[in-house]
Every structure is written in structure tokens, then in C-alpha cells.
Design a protein around this nucleic acid. Structure first.
Length: 905
RNA sequence: GCGCGGUUAGCUCAGCGGUAGAGCGCCUCUCUUACACAGAGGAUGUCACAGGUUCAAAUCCUGUACCGCGCACCA
């Protein structure tokens, strides 16, 4: 006998290995089949998978397995992402543990370490995806990596193409600079966080020392780089001061007062200190008024070009000191409490400095236009649709994309400079020319860039050989943006590209909708001439059970691998899939997985039960179940309806609904009702085969239907039942997804409902009157509904079995025995004779309660039917329904009243 | 400031025009030969508030409050 509790571990380990070994997830470009393609959002090689990955990949796996079972050539393209800054940060942390920095190693050796790490971590991630049950072909020859040679080729081609079309350019601009990661970031890589701070009011005196004007600032330390004070030219308070010269406190430099329309007269004092080097708006003002851009904060977040005492201090330290000095010099007039948001790096959460620097940018407006059109025409369709509008809005407001990063890990910018003839290139390279060289951030690069993937033989201009590559790498999202076609070998014209592109659906969390999805859509349209996917399934973020974001610092992180270890993959997948509703965030807790685990155990125990009754040698399965009785017809009807609901839900990408339907069917209907009704028949010689056939049919089908969501337990059970199920397929995935057997139109559901309600009513009375479940009772059922009674007479076994009734009498004319309790079910009166055990006062009180409830219900129905407007406006079916309800309630009420009267004697 | 979501049972959430639902938790009973990771039964809701539309509103509309989340601003 099998153990009572399912042990997922060995089962999952076994199948996960067999699936890979048998190459179950390999796809071929089969022209006879319709492809269904999903490219995996490649996980960064930063370490272990988290709950977000578990959700994202469980969803994809469900879709892919489902589509494969519906007969499509389903291909889920595996791969990992080099993950730029994020991965470099991980490595730097590891180096720090060794007491080293990346500079200690130098670029070349650092990159060697990175590649070694990729070898290690890339494998770990694939392993974890396999553990999750993912239908991914993880053969290493088929797993793509955003930095492998073929993908590098794609990146170069994209770069070249954008460059040649003039969509890629270099410019000196104000960019977001992370002083910790020491690189520029694009606008969407900056996060905003509200912080309590102060607004300091500082007096800038006139040149002659007399009263000047007061500026308000949240960043006093930047005053050292001020090159003007701006006021609104319409502001009567300051009109007269425009053109005058102020003396910048602490620095002692003269700066002009200028007029600029952008200045908001209502904010602060209406006078703005202008620091063109360290504020985006000031940079603009500076450009308009041709002001000097005076950099006082360097790329490490240290003060430079300052009076000696501030030099080389951190921004924070300098702020403190500047404020003290201003106070001492009587320049500080006011401190106001102020809440504003500070910019933080999305990778390291440290402050972002706006700094002026020369960087590579992609011109976005022209690229965005076709993407907007595609979203509007729903060539790219969002699930849920609510993402359509924000997506389009974001594209409409798009700014140029800063794509150069001053880090080492990534696709090196394929641009070279000649140190022989390009004089601009020379002074800015520090360190050894060549691979080890670094470029000072923000410095101007060579003015004659040479585009080439590998080092050019010689300078096309002067023939010189002293060539140096641009030291920057591309934003990691630059390569991710090409993913839906680079995975198929683009720019080469491969048969994969032709067969699989565009892909079918992209599954991703909304947090990378703009960082990634928008850019893929634009890239696809630009480089492939068509959208990369027709649909985007947007899911939420996995949070803790109170809706808080999971984070190490809060200590509320749930590790999917630990959960898998404790409860099994299927349990975790079932739980998370059930909750992935409508793209909303998912509150997740360990307790919830227990529920999933219990369901897995339930499925397993059904199979145990069936297995107990199987004949030694499997008989040929009956082609069509014949000679059915009510419960059989009922379960088939329910089974078909459930399959239909699952199918419709899957077509609408409503996975939780599909999962929920199957769960409810299997547990509530199949187990709690049908199985219990099947039990006695399994003991009879002639009924056994028929009911067993049906059990196998329905349970086998349900296993297939559940397989996309819970691959392991279903595969395991299916494989053990296979001979009896009459399947010749090696794996469940090779089976066709079960479809509803078509229109039933039978009365089984309605009839069964009558019987089920009687059973429930008897059980209720038993529980309420504390009649021991062990005690067999007698029940009499009377009714004026003769056809109803006929039904019951046909299946008395259902009632005796499930309501624990020993002696059951069914007849129209039965009257209530003297000492009996009564239950009503529709048109049926159910009498349960009792001996001394039951307190009749209790019964009287119970009935009185029932009467009260029914009277209330009756009043509601009557009220509605009295309403002429209801009768005239509501649809006929509705009126009929209420009329019937009123009759039914009325009849039950009067029957009960009679009974209680009788009980009184 | 603009936009998007949310507010339903103790908790987490479904439902989104016709008599309030699930899971978990709680209470009672039962180790009945698939499963106590189970079975049977039970309690608990002015469906945030205020107006409106409708014969009928948790469900549609408008407004308010509170909570999230984007985007912008942030001198």
C-alpha cells in the first residue's frame, strides 16, 4: 500500500531529470503546426531565483504546457541575462569580501571573473528553473545568454543600424549619475523616494555688501557652484535687481541676477540659485543665458573646485559645513521643514547626482511613434487592458535614452578612436591605452568615432594602428530590447526567426513594462519591421501577506526554493497561480502554500483510492461509458462544464480561474460527492467495472487538465495509471488537453441537486440536534411531488449512504411520526423519528427559527411581485423566477407551520 | 499636481446589475477501510461614506474619505 501522504521530493527529482533526458521540451520548426512561442524574461545572473521569478515562470510554464497540449508547436525559449550593473555589483561585493576592488584586478581580469561567475550562476539558475518544473529545454547548447556571441552580433547590428540612421548620438547633457555604481543611468532607472528635509533660505548680498536677495534651496552645498541667481522677470519684488551683481557667500564670487520665465514666483522666495552643473532645470537656464557650468561635485560624490576647506569632502559633509558657515556669517535666514523626493539608484538605492556628462543616447521619438500605433491598434494587446493607456502615455512622453554605462560588465560600445589622428580622443584616456584604459566620466571622447565590432586593422583615415575602444558598455536593457529576435539568431536570416517570430505572448511583471517591454516593442518594429509579440500578459509583484514588498531588510522574504523543499513545487505553483488574479499584486504567505500542499495530497489520495480498486490486468477501456446512472451522468456533466470553463479561462489568460474551476470540481464534486457515491458500487460485481471506468475517465481527464499547473504530481499519477487509462503516450505533455464532451442538455444536474439537498438537510438536522454521526437513523420522505418521489425511489442508496440513513421510506402519503424531527428540502418533507434522545423543545426552537427565516424570505418575494414596475420592466425569466421562489417559500413555510403545531401537542 | 488601482466575513481576496462567496482562521462533532494535509455541520458582512441612474445596485454614474502604485514637480 502506498503511503498516506504524498512525498513530492523524489517524484519531482525524477521527472525533472527524465523530462530533460527525453528532450521533452525541445521544439522544432514544424511547418505543419502552429507555433506558440514565449521568450523567457531572462533572469539576471545575480544569484538565486526569488518569488517573482517563481510567479513569472509558473505562469509561462502553464501557458506553454497548455498550448502544447492543445496541439501547437509550443516553444519556451530559455536564456539568461548578463544583468549589467546588478551583476557587476554582486561581483564587487564578492571582491570586497576578499578585500579587493575591481580596480585592483583591472578590467581584463575582472571580466574573466565575471565570465567564470556566469558559468557558475547561469547553471544554478537553470537548475532552479528546472526545479520549478519549467518546460524549458535547458540543454546548454539551446540556452541563450544576452552576452553570448550570437547575441553580441545582434547588439552590434542594432547599434550599427541606429547609428547609420542617425538615431544614436553622443551629447553632453545632464544625466543621472550614481556615485556608488559610478555610472550614468537612464531616466527610468532612477527611483524617487519621499524624504523629510529642509528648505534653507540663504541671503545673497549685493556686490557692495548691501541687502541682496534671499534664495531658498534644499541643496545648500551646491551654492559653491552657483553662477547666477534667477528671478521671474515679471516678479515686482525683484524686477529692479535683474542685471545687478551679487556676491556669492562663502565662495566670494560675483554672480549676476538674471530673469527667466521658468522661475515660479510662488515657490520659496521666488529667487532661484542657479547651479548649471548640478540641477537639470539650472542646466537649462544656464544654456539659455550662456552661464558658466561650474562643477563642484565630482563623479565620486566629492566636492571639487571649491574653497579649500570644502574640497574633497562628501556632499553630506560639505552640506553640514556650508550650513554652519552660512549661519556663522549671518547668511542663513530661515530653515523650513520640507518634504521632497530624492533620486535613488534602482540598483543600489544610493543617491543619484544630476551631473553633466557626455554620453551615448538613442533618439526615441521616431522609434516610439510606431510602438504607440501598435499599442493603439492592439497589435500588441495587454492583459489586463488597463496597461494599454499607461503604456501609450509613457511612450508619448518619452525622452532620449542614455545607453552608455561607465561599468565594465556588458556589451562594450563598438566604437573606436584613433589616437594617431583624432586629437580629441587623446587627453581623456587615463591608464594604459588599450584594454585597461578608462575614460574619465564626462570627458569628451574622440571626435572621429570608428564603428567596428572588433578592433579595426588600422585607422581608415590616417592608417595608424594606435586605436582605442570606447571604454563604456551599453545599458543592459539595450541587449534585452532585442531579445525576442536575437534569441532566434537575428541579424542572420535563420529558419527559426522566420518560424517563431513574432512570438505569441510575453509574460512579465509591470515593474519592467517600460524598462523592457516598451523597448522590445520599439526594437521589434524598428529592426524586424513588426511587433515582437501580439500579447503581453502583465502580472503583479509578489508581496508578503500584508501587502508589503518583500525585502531582506524587512526580513519578510519568502524563498521559493525553501518553499519547494518544504511543500513541493506543485503546491507552490498551485498556490501562486491561484492568486495571480487580474495582474494585481499577490499577497503571499507560507500558510497559503499549506493549502496548495493539501490539494496536492488530495489528488494523490484520489489516485490511491482508485488504485486500490484496480484489477490486476487492465481491461481495454470502454470506448464510451454506457448504461449510466444519475450520479454518473451528473459527474460527466460537471466534468464537461469544468473543462469548458478551464478552456475559456485559458483563452482569456485567466489562469487563476482555470485553476480554481478544476480545484473546486475535483475536491468538492468529484471527491466529496461522486467518490462517496461510487464506493458502494465498487463492491458489487456488475457495477464495479462501469464505475471504475468512469472514475478513470474523469480523474484521468482532470489530471491532464491540471497538468499545466501542477506538472509533477499529475505526471507521477498519470504514469502509474497509464495502463488502465489506456494511454500510450510517454508523458502527459504529449496528451491532448481534454475538451468538453459537448452539449449535455440533460437533467442530471437538476435531479442530482434535489438529492444532494435532501442529504444536506438530513446532515444538518443531525448536526444541529446532535445525533451522533455513527448512529444510523430512519428517515421518511413525503411529498406531493410524485415525479420527485419517483426520482428518490430510483436512487435511495444515495441518501442512505451519504446521510447515514439505515431505513428509508419514500412515499407520497407518509405522515409525520409522533416523535420526529423534520427537515424540508424543496417539495419534500423529511421526517426523522427519534427516541428519547432528542429534546423536542430544541426541535421546536429550531423550527421556529426556520419559520422566521422563511417568513422573511417570503415577504421579500411578495414585496417584489407586488411592485407593478418590477412586473412590467424586469425580464420575464426574472419574474418567473421570483414567482416560483415565492411559491416554494410559501409552501415550505406553511408545511413547517403545520409541523410545529403538531409538535406542540 | 495628473493618472491608475483598491476599500466585501477575524485575515487574504474572488464576485462586478437580479436572494452575499472562497481559502485560511474560529466553534461543534467524527481517526466511517483514499486522504485528520481529511469528512460533516456551524458562526461571522448596514459589500468605506454620500448622492444619483434603474423595477432592481456590492456590482453602473458622480462626489468624498482613507490606502496603495505610477508619472510629473520638487529652487
Amino acid at each position: 500500500m502506498l503511503p498516506k501522504v504524498y512525498d513530492p521530493k523524489p517524484v519531482e527529482a525524477k521527472w525533472s531529470e527524465v523530462w530533460q533526458k527525453e528532450k521533452l521540451f525541445v521544439s522544432t520548426t514544424d511547418k505543419n503546426k502552429k507555433p506558440f512561442v514565449v521568450v523567457i524574461p531572462p533572469p539576471n545572473i545575480t544569484g538565486a531565483l526569488h518569488m517573482g521569478h517563481a510567479l513569472n515562470n509558473s505562469l509561462q510554464d502553464s501557458l506553454v504546457r497548455y498550448e502544447r497540449m492543445t496541439g501547437k508547436e509550443a516553444y519556451w525559449v530559455p536564456g539568461t541575462d548578463h544583468g549589467g550593473i546588478a551583476t557587476q555589483n554582486v561581483m564587487e561585493k564578492m571582491l570586497r569580501a576578499e578585500g579587493k576592488t575591481r580596480e585592483d584586478l583591472g578590467r581584463e581580469r575582472f571580466l574573466e571573473r565575471m565570465w567564470a561567475w556566469y558559468g557558475e550562476c547561469g547553471g544554478t539558475i537553470l537548475n532552479q528553473l528546472r526545479k520549478l518544473g519549467c518546460a524549458l529545454d535547458t540543454d546548454k547548447d539551446n540556452v541563450r545568454f544576452t552576452m553570448d556571441p550570437q547575441r553580441a552580433k545582434a547588439v552590434f547590428e542594432a547599434f550599427r543600424s541606429l547609428w547609420e540612421k542617425g538615431l544614436l548620438y553622443r551629447d553632453e547633457r545632464m544625466i543621472n549619475w550614481c556615485t556608488r555604481c559610478e555610472t550614468a543611468l537612464s531616466d527610468i532607472e532612477v527611483e524617487y523616494e519621499e524624504e523629510k528635509s529642509k528648505l534653507w533660505h540663504i541671503h545673497y548680498p549685493l556686490e557692495n555688501g548691501s541687502r541682496g536677495l534671499v534664495v531658498a534651496t534644499t541643496r545648500p552645498e551646491t551654492m559653491l557652484g552657483d553662477t547666477a541667481v534667477a528671478v521671474n522677470p515679471e516678479d515686482p519684488r525683484y524686477k529692479g535687481l535683474i542685471g545687478k551683481t551679487l556676491l556669492l557667500p562663502l565662495a566670494g564670487r560675483p554672480i549676476p541676477v538674471i530673469g527667466d520665465e521658468e522661475v515660479d514666483t510662488t515657490f520659496g522666495t521666488g529667487a532661484v540659485k542657479v547651479t548649471p552643473a548640478h540641477d537639470p532645470l539650472d542646466f537649462e537656464i544656464g544654456r539659455r543665458h550662456k552661464l558658466e557650468t561650474r562643477q563642484v561635485i565630482d563623479f565620486n560624490g566629492k566636492m571639487i573646485n571649491c574653497p579649500g576647506k570644502y574640497e574633497d569632502k562628501s556632499v553630506q559633509a560639505a552640506r553640514k559645513e556650508v550650513l554652519e558657515d552660512l549661519k556663522a556669517g549671518n547668511f542663513l535666514e530661515k530653515e523650513e521643514h520640507y518634504k521632497h523626493s530624492v533620486n535613488k539608484c534602482y540598483r543600489c538605492n544610493q543617491h543619484i547626482e544630476p551631473l553633466v556628462s557626455e554620453q551615448w543616447f538613442v533618439k526615441m521619438k521616431d522609434l516610439a511613434a510606431p510602438a504607440i500605433a501598435a499599442a493603439e491598434k492592439e497589435e500588441v494587446k495587454f492583459y489586463p487592458v488597463s496597461w494599454k493607456k499607461p503604456f501609450i502615455e509613457w511612450l508619448r512622453n518619452i525622452q532620449d535614452w542614455c545607453v552608455s554605462r561607465q561599468i565594465w560588465w556588458g556589451h562594450r560600445i563598438p566604437v573606436w578612436y584613433c589616437l594617431g589622428c583624432d586629437r580629441d580622443a587623446l587627453p581623456y584616456i587615463v591608464g594604459t591605452a588599450g584594454e585597461g584604459g578608462t575614460l574619465l566620466p564626462g570627458s569628451r571622447k574622440g571626435s572621429n568615432p570608428i564603428l567596428s565590432m572588433d578592433k579595426p586593422e588600422k585607422c581608415p583615415k590616417c592608417g595608424g594602428h594606435n586605436l582605442i575602444q570606447d571604454p563604456d558598455v551599453l545599458d543592459t536593457w539595450f541587449s534585452s530590447a532585442l531579445w525576442p529576435f536575437s534569441v532566434f539568431g537575428w541579424p542572420d536570416k535563420t529558419k527559426e526567426l522566420e518560424y517563431y517570430y513574432p512570438t505569441s505572448v510575453l509574460v512579465t511583471g509591470y515593474e519592467i513594462l517600460y524598462l523592457w517591454v516598451a523597448r522590445m516593442v520599439m526594437s521589434g518594429l524598428e529592426h524586424m519591421g513588426g511587433v515582437p509579440f501580439g500579447r503581453v500578459y502583465v502580472h503583479g509583484i509578489v508581496r508578503d501577506k500584508h501587502g508589503k514588498k518583500m525585502s531582506k531588510s524587512l526580513g519578510n522574504v519568502i524563498d521559493p526554493l525553501t518553499m519547494i523543499d518544504k511543500y513541493g513545487t506543485d503546491a507552490m505553483r498551485f498556490t501562486i497561480l491561484s492568486q495571480a488574479i487580474g495582474g494585481k499584486d499577490i499577497p503571499f504567505s507560507e500558510e497559503a502554500i499549506v493549502g496548495g500542499r493539501n490539494f496536492v495530497n488530495k489528488i494523490y489520495n484520489v489516485s490511491r483510492f482508485i488504485q486500490m480498486h484496480l484489477p490486476e490486468t487492465p481491461a481495454a477501456p470502454a470506448a464510451a461509458p454506457a448504461d449510466l446512472e444519475l450520479a454518473d451522468e451528473w459527474i460527466l456533466e460537471r466534468y464537461n462544464k469544468t473543462l469548458e470553463e478551464a478552456r475559456l479561462s485559458m483563452e482569456d489568460y485567466d489562469i487563476p480561474k482555470a485553476v480554481g474551476a478544476l480545484y473546486g470540481f475535483l475536491w468538492d464534486e468529484f471527491c466529496d460527492w461522486y467518490l462517496e457515491l461510487a464506493k458502494p458500487r465498487l463492491e458489487t460485481a456488475d457495477g464495479k467495472d462501469r464505475v471504475l471506468g468512469l472514475l478513470l475517465h474523469v480523474f484521468g481527464g482532470t489530471l491532464k487538465a491540471l497538468h499545466p499547473f501542477m506538472p509533477y504530481v499529475t505526471e507521477e499519477i498519470f504514469s502509474s495509471l497509464k495502463p488502465w487509462l489506456g494511454s500510450d503516450k510517454p508523458f502527459l505533455l504529449k496528451e491532448a488537453y481534454p475538451r468538453s464532451g459537448g452539449a449535455s442538455g440533460g437533467t442530471a444536474e437538476a435531479d442530482m441537486k434535489k438529492i444532494m439537498d435532501i442529504i444536506t438537510q438530513i446532515r444538518m438536522v443531525r448536526a444541529q440536534l446532535e445525533i451522533s454521526p455513527a448512529k444510523n437513523i430512519t428517515a421518511l420522505i413525503a411529498s406531493a411531488d410524485t415525479s420527485g418521489l419517483g426520482l428518490l425511489q430510483k436512487y435511495p442508496g444515495y441518501i442512505t449512504r451519504l446521510a447515514k440513513v439505515e431505513k428509508l421510506e419514500i412515499a407520497a402519503g407518509l405522515s409525520k411520526p409522533r416523535r420526529a424531527v423534520t427537515a424540508l428540502s424543496g417539495a419534500f418533507n423529511i421526517y426523522i423519528p427519534v427516541e428519547g434522545v432528542v429534546d423536542l423543545n430544541k426541535e421546536r426552537a429550531r423550527l421556529a427559527g426556520e419559520i422566521e427565516k422563511l417568513a422573511g424570505e417570503l415577504a421579500v418575494s411578495e414585496e417584489r411581485l407586488k411592485n407593478v414596475n418590477f412586473i412590467s420592466h424586469a425580464p420575464r425569466e426574472e419574474v418567473e423566477k421570483i414567482t416560483l421562489r415565492k411559491a416554494d417559500t410559501g409552501s415550505r413555510l406553511s408545511r413547517l407551520k403545520e409541523i410545529i403545531k403538531d409538535l406542540g401537542s
